[in-house]
Every structure is written in C-alpha cells, then in structure tokens.
Lab assay of single mutants.
Amino acid sequence: MEVRTIKVFTTVDNINLHTQVVDMSMTYGQQFGPTYLDGADVTKIKPHNSHEGKTFYVLPNDDTLRVEAFEYYHTTDPSFLGRYMSALNHTKKWKYPQVNGLTSIKWADNNCYLATALLTLQQIELKFNPPALQDAYYRARAGEAANFCALILAYCNKTVGELGDVRETMSYLFQHANLDSCKRVLNVVCKTCGQQQTTLKGVEAVMYMGTLSYEQFKKGVQIPCTCGKQATKYLVQQESPFVMMSAPPAQYELKHGTFTCASEYTGNYQCGHYKHITSKETLYCIDGALLTKSSEYKGPITDVFYKENSYTTTIK
C-alpha cells in the first residue's frame, strides 16, 4: 500500500517557510505537534488534498525554529505562539472599519479597549522592536488589523473576551517599542525636605499616572512627601515624541487643539466601556464603527496623549 502524501510549508514567522512532505494517514499533531492554519487549530486533523502548498504555523520545537521565533517575536515564552494563534482565530472574524481616516474595530468580545489602543497607536510616533509587531502594525494602518490585535493580546497575556485596560495595554506595548531616546527629568520640591531631581528613561519617561493635564504637570502637581507634608512635583525636561497622561476616570474637559487623542471610560472596574476622542479640525468621538463630532467635550476621561518633541522648564 502506497503512502499518500502532500507537500506543505511549516513556519513560526510566515517569513521562513520549511518544506514538509506530510503523510495523509496521520494527523498534523502526530507529525508536527500543535499546528495552526489561519489561526485555526488543526492539530487533530489529517492532511487533505486542499492543504497542498498551504502554510501551517507550528510551535518552535527545534533550534532553527526557536531562533526564527525569537528573532521575529522577541520572546522565548513557549506558550506565546499558541496564544497568538488562538487569538487570531477570533480577531480574523472582527470587522476593521476605516473611521475618520483611522483603522478602528467594530465592537465584539469586549474589544473596546483594543480599538482605543489601536486608534491611539496610529496617532503617536512609535516604532516597535519585534519585527512581528512592526509588520502587523503597518498592515493594521492599511486596514488589516487582525494579526496586530492578536499579537497585542498575546504580548499582554490576554484572551479574547476578557476586559482590558488601555493604560495597561499601552504599557505592555511600550515595553516592546523603541523608547531608548526618551528621557524625563522631574523635580520634587518640599518646604521641609528641599528639592530632589529624578531622571527617568524609556517607558517611565512617557507615562504618568495622577493627572490628565500635561500643562498642569509642567506647572506642578501636589504629591505627598515622605515627611508627610505636601510637596510639588513638576516637569523639568521632556525628550520624547509623545507623552501619555493618565488618571482614574473623572469628568474632564478636553479643549480642541490642546491634545492629540484621549480615552474615555464609562462604567466601573468590573464592567465598563471605552471610547476614543481625537482632536482634528474639530473633536471626534470614535466608538467602534461609530463616529460623532463636537466642538467641545466633557466626560469621564482616563488617558490623554500629547505630541511632544523637546521641553525644558522655565521655572527657576
């Protein structure tokens, strides 16, 4: 009895394709271990004539594949690729409408935090270190965002349907971005203890939790000093293409032309909904596939993004 075979390709990165001759009487799992086709788990399936010449994702289970996976995804987590594939199996079914010149995501599976993050990423200057993220990001900007969303979920250790947080998501993504040249110098002034300067680099240099107003941050924000008295913390120097200011959701007025974009969060910790506000020729609110415009805006804002380049204080 002759062994019926077909020729397929296996890959971990969709760049390096490895030619395989597979036995049609055995499952993919018996031949390769966990195997995925377009995100779908085909591990328990036997090869079919229609699979001839198709590319299958496999887990990096030998040295060659491990090197290829690390170079593309910059992670050695053995569960990463499987999590990416199972997320992709959902995100490829989502709709990605162009809204006001940006790629958004039609609401499904509690994905409003991903839509808000995706919209924000198209408006701030950011370059990702893992080629996987950078490639998928370019495709997302062009309207094909399924891979990018699935990668975000995998890097953030999230599953489809789980509630997510924009600030946490951005923080994970910033860790995989090139923020080497970003720098922030802060000064804390206390009447009792004097003053202390701190220099922050990388992710810490672009994120701040405690106030939404970048102007206020430049002037000074009140913080408790270690001595128990009130101290003032203010920005001395900022070198970065953008800054992200966050605070627990509270009524906040966004003035046209003073910011790049913002995240609105309605609801409580267990259950809520994100919308995205962007400042173009007027203010726009993007909620999944829905767009509304207004000249002014007041609502429960939790993150505001500002364009920056270089700032030095005039406070002496």
Rank of each mutant, 00 (worst) to 15 (best):
D41H: 05
G288T: 06
S104G: 13
C156P: 00
V304H: 02
K92M: 11
H176Y: 14
G33A: 08
G29A: 07
Q98G: 07
P248C: 01
T5A: 12
C227T: 02
F9G: 07
D180E: 12
L17F: 12
P241A: 09
C285N: 12
T192E: 08
Q122V: 02
L59P: 05
Y73K: 07
H18R: 11
R167E: 02
Y84K: 02
G202A: 06
R167K: 10
F9I: 11
R184D: 00
F259D: 06
D180T: 11
L59C: 00
K127F: 10
C193H: 12
T260N: 00
T258P: 00
Q134T: 10
A154D: 01
T11Q: 09
A177I: 12
S79Y: 14
L17K: 09
E68V: 03
S50C: 13
T159S: 11
R141C: 13
Q122P: 06
Y269P: 15
T11F: 06
I15E: 06
K219V: 07
Q123R: 02
F9N: 13
T314Q: 15
T103I: 12
T226C: 11
V21F: 10
D180V: 07
I152V: 06
Y28Q: 05
C227M: 01
F70P: 03
V166Y: 10
A247K: 02
Y284V: 10
S86H: 08
L254H: 03
D165P: 02
T64E: 14
P249D: 06
I277A: 00
D23Q: 10
N100A: 13
G267D: 15
S25V: 09
K95C: 11
A87E: 10
F128M: 08
P130L: 03
R167P: 00
A132H: 06
I286S: 00
E253D: 08
Q20R: 13
L151M: 05
A154K: 03
K219A: 13
T64C: 12
F148R: 05
W107G: 02
G53P: 06
G82C: 14
K46A: 11
K54Y: 13
N16H: 10
P241Y: 05
L114C: 04
V185P: 05
D41Y: 07
G257Y: 02
H176W: 15
V99A: 01
T292Q: 10
T5S: 09
S294H: 15
T192H: 12
T19Q: 10
L88Y: 13
D38M: 10
K54C: 14
T278R: 06
A247N: 04
G210L: 00
L212G: 04
E68T: 04
Y297M: 08
F9A: 15
A117R: 05
M85E: 02
L65F: 08
A154G: 03
L121E: 00
Q31L: 12
K316F: 15
A247Q: 02
G194D: 02
Y172P: 04
Q98R: 14
Q216F: 04
A262G: 00
Y284G: 02
V166A: 06
C227H: 00
D63Y: 09
A250G: 13
P130G: 09
F217H: 03
V185Y: 01
N129T: 08
A108F: 08
A150Q: 04
A154W: 08
V166F: 01
P97T: 10
K127E: 14
I152P: 00
L290V: 14
K54F: 13
A177H: 00
V203G: 04
E239N: 08
Q237N: 08
H276E: 04
A136N: 08
R83W: 06
S50K: 13
Y28C: 00
G228L: 03
H18I: 15
R83Q: 00
K229R: 11
F174A: 01
I223S: 12
L283N: 07
G39H: 08
Y214R: 05
Y306W: 10
D23C: 09
H176T: 02
V221Y: 07
E281P: 00
S104Q: 11
A177M: 12
S50L: 13
A247R: 06
Y28F: 14
L235K: 00
I152N: 00
V236G: 01
T278I: 08
T169F: 10
E264C: 05
T312S: 11
T76I: 09
T159K: 14
K316E: 15
G194K: 06
T260H: 08
Y265W: 06
A150P: 01
N147P: 11
A289T: 09
D41G: 06
H48K: 14
I105S: 09
H276P: 06
C193T: 05
T27L: 09
C182D: 14
A117G: 05
Q216N: 09
D77T: 04
N157Q: 10
L173K: 10
N129W: 13
T199V: 14
C271P: 09
M24G: 12
Q251A: 09
L114E: 04
A117F: 02
A145K: 07
I223C: 15
I6T: 12
A146P: 02
T5F: 09
T116E: 05
D109K: 04
C193P: 07
V203D: 11
Q251G: 09
A132P: 03
N129P: 05
E204R: 09
T302A: 12
P60C: 00
Y311T: 08
S50A: 11
N129K: 14
Y306H: 02
K280E: 09
Q175W: 05
T232K: 06
Q134C: 04
E264D: 05
Q222H: 02
H51N: 07
E253T: 11
W94D: 08
T211M: 04
P248Y: 15
I6H: 03
S79I: 09
G210R: 07
F128R: 05
V12N: 04
H256N: 15
H74F: 01
V236Y: 06
G101E: 09
F9D: 09
C285I: 15
L200E: 06
L102H: 04
R66Y: 07
A205E: 04
N111V: 01
D287A: 02
Y72R: 11
P97L: 13
K44E: 14
Y36M: 06
P130M: 03
Y311V: 02
V166Q: 02
E239D: 08
T91I: 04
T43C: 13
L153S: 13
V8C: 13
E215M: 02
T198L: 13
M24A: 13
K229T: 14
C261L: 01
H256P: 12
L126Y: 06
V160A: 08
P97H: 10
V188D: 02
K191S: 15
Q237D: 05
